[in-house]
């Protein structure tokens, strides 16, 4: 009922116009619209450029898949062997005969060995840094681990081939002697240098350790203090605190960190190329030299490859690309799900 009367009292817009001393409304508006026109052009250009870069990234990803697939079809259609089950890699021959059986086996096995060694140790180090190390030591240790993640893979490869391989001879003999009955640790030729998938797995484990440790440590540091203090207040020992509050909270973090490490182990090239003595054999004896991985085969066979050989290598690269894509995508999905449901971010 009051509303109409109130509207009568409200001042009309002209009353609010600037005093005559300032610019007239007309010119002020014109200047403003010119300025906003410039601004809008600038804004449009900038927004367009940044959006364009984002799209460019997607285009590059798509282009990688398409270009690899195009060359791969050329190679696979000329292939006389079965691409999935053939052992040998004679892509330079005429007609070309090649298959990824040995490479897939070697890639998977060496990565599994690496994960079996690296994940528990990395979780241990992450716990050490976040919960066990003296506070004054924890920061420098984390810093050193960061630095070690930056050591180029070729240096791991050089060290692995010239230092680790000779130092693993004894361990190999010991494994062969006492665990030989498990078949996987049975070494057919005990005198051979251990340039085997097992050695590659150990080296890969050392290489992916810093990454897994870093990501896991970040997650462990995010565990809500209240959870840990509640457990301590109930009289839990330090291990019980970790088992009851830290590990459950960090589980998906550990999983995704491991998968990131796995992605790196699957695609690692130089360290495998320097250490492994490759041959087209597929054996369950992990200590025997021989075998190969996708990335190692590409690096080693590239120099002597003719046109068809290159296309065949690209085909194997496509398989590697798809595998790492799946592994990394899965890791990211786990991380994303964790972010949404984690109580720590609330």
């Amino acid at each position: 009922m009051d509303t109409p009367s109130r509207s009568e009292h409200t001042p009309s817009p002209p009353d609010l116009v600037t005093p005559p001393g300032l610019t007239s409304p007309q010119t002020g508006l014109a200047a403003a619209s010119a300025a906003s026109g410039r601004a809008r052009l600038g804004d449009r250009l900038f927004a367009g450029a940044s959006k364009g870069s984002g799209i460019l990234l997607l285009v590059i990803m798509a282009a990688i898949a398409v270009f690899l697939a195009v060359r791969a079809t050329v190679a696979i259609s000329a292939n006389e062997g079965n691409f999935l089950t053939t052992f040998e890699w004679n892509a330079n021959a005429n007609p070309p005969v090649f298959g990824i059986a040995v490479l897939a086996y070697g890639t998977v096995v060496s990565s599994i060995i690496a994960m079996v060694i690296a994940v528990p140790v990395a979780v241990g180090i992450a716990l050490f840094v976040s919960h066990y190390a003296p506070r004054r030591l924890a920061q420098p240790i984390a810093f050193v681990i960061d630095l070690l993640a930056a050591v180029p893979s070729i240096i791991y490869g050089l060290w692995g081939a010239l230092f680790l391989v000779p130092h693993l001879t004894g361990l190999n003999l010991w494994l062969d002697e006492y665990l030989g009955w498990t078949v996987i640790f049975d070494k057919t030729n005990p005198a051979a240098t251990p340039r085997s998938l097992f050695t590659v797995g150990i080296l890969l484990a050392i290489m992916i350790l810093p990454i897994i440790t870093n990501v896991t440590r970040e997650v462990f540091l995010q565990v809500p203090r209240a959870h840990e203090e509640a457990a301590l207040a109930l009289g839990a020992t330090r291990w019980e605190v970790i088992r009851m509050s830290v590990l459950p909270f960090g589980r998906s973090g550990i999983i995704s960190a491991s998968m990131l490490g796995l992605g790196r182990a699957l695609g690692e090239t130089m360290a495998v190329a320097t250490v492994l003595s490759a041959s087209p054999v597929l054996t369950a004896h992990l200590l025997d030299a021989g075998g190969g991985t996708f990335a190692q085969n590409i690096a080693s066979a590239f120099k002597e490859a003719n046109d068809m050989g290159r296309d065949a290598l690209i085909a194997s690269g496509l398989v590697l690309f798809v595998i790492t894509l799946l592994v990394n995508g899965a890791a990211r999905l786990i991380i994303a799900r964790h972010k949404e449901y984690s109580g720590a971010n609330a």
Partner: peptide, 17 residues
């Protein structure tokens, strides 16, 4: 995120092809 995990040799193969 996924691109972060591309093996370096695959990036090389892409430019190669």
């Amino acid at each position: 995120d996924v691109m972060t995990g591309i093996p370096s040799i695959v990036a090389g193969l892409f430019i190669l092809s």
